[in-house]
Structures are given as structure tokens and as C-alpha cells.
């Protein structure tokens, strides 16, 4: 195989490259069933979930297409249909079904889909991790301290109601920020998809890719921190 670069298109080609049927050893071109002997083939562990469903590596995906493809493949691999087949085929059917379920669960949820894409691209983009959000940490620690103070306070006291009012305001602000982050994420998703669709291999396109991925990583991380503190807030003052 030639092509040692870490380009997404190269990798897709690699998956579709010819391989050999485990049973009749005839050459195949990446299908799930051998043309010649019709035996089921194991889904390669290197196959990414997008390729597994025949989808491009985009963040906006048609969930109906995903679902119908999932049902189609689920039927094709379902262990029930392999009960009378050989051990090898039964085990392939089990493995493929497990992989398919994980792939579907991951791609169905937009956030998990983005996290997965970041994992996939981490190899091709150096240092996708960015610096920790120090300000956000400080803010969270401070909020947690107020929460502790409130938990320990006498709920009927004036001090407690002052704290409660403050925590309510904090909660509203944080929820506002959550909406903000969601909107920014959506924008990044669209920018990523547009870039994928253009398919340019220029230096500029590569730089933009890296930037988009880093921004996505940042927002997704911050989103988790904020979600945790909002959950704590809601649980405590509700």
C-alpha cells in the first residue's frame, strides 16, 4: 500500500482497498459479504464509524439515512440468522453486531459524533488538546464553595435566602452560556462540513481544519464542566 499520509481521504481509500475473503481467499473490495462465496466478512477494527455506515466524515448527518442504514446492516449481521452457520461465521456476526451498535449510538448523538470525530482527527492534527480554561476552573471552585455554604446553612435564615438568590442568578447566567456554547458548536459543525465538502488540500485549508478542531475541543470540554456545575446547582437549589 502506498500513501502514508494521515489524510482522511487516503484512509477511506485504504478501507476500500482490496482485501481477501477469510473463507475462499478471493479478492474483495471492502464489502461486508464476499462476492464469490457469500460469506459474511468481519468489519475491520480500523474501519471508522462513518465509513462503516457509508457516510462522509461530516458533522451534520441525515439521521434518517443513518437509521435505515443501521437497520439494514443490523439485519445483515444479526446473530439469529447465523445460528445454523459455522462457528467462524457466528463469531463474525456477533462481533459485527456489537461494533454496529456502538457505531450507531456514537453517531446518532451530535455531541458524541463530534467527540468521536475529534478522536479520529487527533492523529492528523498535532496537539488537539488546548490549555485548560483556568478562569472557568476558578469560577467553578468559587461556585462550589457557595454551594457548600448554602448546604450547611440554616435554610430559614436570611443568609440562606441571600445565597439562594445568588445561586439562582448564577444558574441563569450559566444556562445562558450553555445555549451560547451550543450555538457556537453548531457554527463550527457547519464550518467543518463546508470545509470537508470543498475537499481542498491547501495549506490554508489545513490550518482552518486545525483551528476548527481546536475550537470544538475547547467548547466540548468547557461544556462538560459547565454542565456538571449546572447539575449541582439545580440539584441543590431546586
Amino acid at each position: 500500500m502506498s500513501g502514508h499520509t494521515h489524510n482522511a481521504d487516503d484512509r477511506r481509500e485504504l478501507q476500500m482497498a482490496r482485501s481477501m475473503c477469510w473463507h475462499c481467499q478471493s479478492e474483495m473490495a471492502g464489502e461486508y459479504f464476499c462476492d464469490r462465496c457469500v460469506k459474511v466478512q468481519p468489519v475491520s477494527k480500523d474501519l471508522d464509524y462513518f465509513t462503516c455506515f457509508g457516510l462522509p466524515r461530516r458533522l451534520a448527518i441525515d439521521t434518517q439515512v443513518l437509521e435505515s442504514k443501521f437497520y439494514e446492516l443490523s439485519r445483515a449481521f444479526h446473530p439469529d440468522f447465523y445460528q445454523n452457520k459455522s462457528d467462524a461465521e457466528q463469531s463474525i456476526s456477533l462481533g459485527n453486531s456489537a461494533m454496529l451498535n456502538t457505531a450507531y449510538r456514537t453517531l446518532r448523538d451530535p455531541i458524541q459524533r463530534a467527540e468521536y470525530l475529534l478522536d479520529l482527527e487527533a492523529g492528523s492534527v498535532k496537539d488537539i488538546r488546548t490549555s485548560p480554561p483556568a478562569d472557568l476552573f476558578e469560577e467553578i471552585l468559587e461556585l462550589q464553595e457557595t454551594l457548600d455554604e448554602f448546604r450547611e446553612s440554616d435554610r430559614s435564615s436570611e443568609h440562606a435566602s441571600t445565597l439562594r438568590a445568588k445561586l439562582h442568578t448564577d444558574r441563569t447566567n450559566l444556562e445562558e452560556r450553555q445555549r451560547d456554547m451550543e450555538a457556537k458548536l453548531q457554527q463550527l459543525f457547519s464550518r467543518w462540513d463546508a470545509l470537508q465538502d470543498r475537499g481542498e488540500a491547501t495549506e490554508q485549508a489545513r490550518a482552518e481544519r486545525t483551528l476548527i478542531l481546536k475550537d470544538m475541543r475547547d467548547i466540548l470540554s468547557n461544556r462538560t464542566y459547565v454542565k456538571n456545575i449546572v447539575n449541582d446547582l439545580v440539584a441543590t437549589i431546586a
Partner: peptide, 13 residues
């Protein structure tokens, strides 16, 4: 030192 784990959202000081 204040650090966090983006996977789970834990924050440690």
C-alpha cells in the same frame, strides 16, 4: 494547581 478532566468534568485544586 487547578486542573480538570474534560472527559468527565471533574475539577481538582
Amino acid at each position: 494547581g487547578i486542573v480538570g478532566a474534560p472527559e468527565c468534568g471533574d475539577v481538582m485544586k
